[in-house]
């Protein structure tokens, strides 16, 4: 990082007070003990609006220590507004070292992507989650969704999948495709592309999910079975742009489509900026 960021005085380490951190830490531990189950927590007001990653920030603040190296990505990129603001926030209130390189990071906060480079045992991935309830569009009553999770009754989600396939010949969701965790809980993977869903399966890293507005925390321990919801005769097939990356030429990474001129020209580039930079080396 080139720009020096001055540490802000007058705040506790990593902004949150210790009682709040303890509450969030207890929720994280129970989340790891019950993979995929949403744990309610008392989300605090943060110095940025809901929808900007308040849940992820609170989880990161409770996990982060002075020896960590933090990476923040927004749709795979280290240099977008959301990623830059959150990175600077933790530089100021926790004085932690930051990085844009996936390989160097110990804690990675992410909005809607999982890095292309396989994660390792020493890493923690923190997801920003807008809507933690995978049954939200199918059953609006939270009391009822809690009961359905308790019973493990996910027929609504199966039915939705069936209707999508019957109408369109394929599942309608290219992102935020629900997953079954350890064969028990249906879980929202947060709005990551379907392409990233397989990376949740038996990941070496600890996966933590924080939803600030909805006040829920959930987790997937390492090496846990995670499968995308599908049918035997219609297996889950993530979509991937057919074109290679315009910068690095990669064919197997997830791409963003970019309008390149005003005559309808388009190029595809890697969404993971660190991965693209490494490929170009």
């Amino acid at each position: 990082m080139s720009a020096a960021v001055q540490e802000a005085g007058g705040y506790n380490f990593a902004y949150l007070d210790e009682a709040t951190k303890r509450m969030i830490r207890r929720a994280i531990l129970k989340g790891l003990a019950i993979p995929g189950h949403q744990i309610p927590f008392g989300a605090r007001e943060m110095p940025l609006p809901y929808g900007w990653g308040t849940g992820g920030i609170q989880v990161t603040a409770s996990v982060l220590g002075p020896r960590d190296r933090l990476k923040v990505i927004d749709q795979g990129a280290d240099d977008t507004t959301n990623a830059v603001s959150i990175r600077r926030f933790f530089q100021r209130v926790a004085g932690v070292k930051v990085t844009t390189r996936t390989a160097e990071a110990t804690v990675i906060q992410t909005r809607h992507r999982i890095p292309e480079r396989p994660l390792t045992e020493g890493q923690v991935l923190v997801f920003q989650v807008p809507m933690p309830e995978p049954l939200f569009r199918l059953e609006p009553r939270l009391a009822e969704t809690r009961r359905l999770h308790a019973l493990g009754d996910y027929s609504l989600a199966q039915l939705r999948l069936y209707e999508d396939i019957a109408r369109q010949g394929e599942t309608g969701s290219s992102y935020n495709h629900p997953v079954m965790v350890n064969g028990r809980y249906l879980m929202s993977p947060s709005p990551i592309p379907g392409y990233d869903n397989p990376k949740l399966h038996r990941s070496a890293a600890i996966l933590l999910f924080g939803a600030g507005r909805e006040k829920k925390i959930y987790a997937v321990p390492p090496w846990t079975e995670v499968s995308s919801l599908d049918f035997d005769d219609h297996p889950f097939r993530p979509m991937l742009a057919a074109a290679p990356c315009a910068f690095c030429g990669s064919r197997d990474s997830y791409k963003d489509e970019i309008v390149s001129d005003d005559r309808g020209g388009r190029v595809f580039v890697c969404s993971d900026t660190d991965h693209c930079r490494e490929n170009q080396r």
């Binding site: 210790e18 951190k21 531990l29 790891l32 996990v63």
Partner: peptide, 19 residues
């Protein structure tokens, strides 16, 4: 150090619960 020692202990607890 109540803040940093608790953080270090929590990270160990999180590793323990996750593995």
């Amino acid at each position: 150090d109540p803040v940093l020692d608790a953080q270090a202990c929590f990270r160990a607890a999180m590793e323990a619960m996750a593995r």
